[in-house]
């Protein structure tokens, strides 16, 4: 499924490092998203882009939300970032 216009794009690093260091939680992100915004979010995975190689990126797991990188990501942090994108974005 491709991203539709106006959707927030969430990319999760599927690399083993991120997965073991807490990224496994994102396997259930679709079920954890609030019902009312579920259709506004496009979740996809990515092979390790190497964020973990640079210390300034912070700690794993890494997720990007509309291209913005988040380190030490967890379900709650990602969901609130999505909500923020939705309120600030053009799509209402």
């Amino acid at each position: 499924m491709n991203k539709m216009n106006g959707q927030v794009e969430v990319s999760i690093c599927y690399g083993t490092l991120c997965f073991v260091m807490g990224g496994s939680e994102f396997e259930i992100i679709q079920d954890q998203l609030p019902q009312n915004i579920r259709h506004l979010v496009h979740v996809k995975g990515m092979n390790c882009p190497g964020y973990c190689n640079k210390q300034e990126n912070g700690k794993p797991p890494f997720v990007t939300i509309n291209g913005k990188l988040m380190g030490e990501a967890n379900l709650q942090k990602v969901i609130s970032a999505i909500t923020e994108e939705l309120t600030n974005g053009t799509y209402k």
Partner: peptide, 16 residues
């Protein structure tokens, strides 16, 4: 958990 940590230490990435 140790298996996963060992994969990290050895740079073994299941995705590839």
């Amino acid at each position: 958990e140790e298996l996963g940590s060992l994969m990290i230490a050895k740079g073994v990435d299941l995705q590839v």
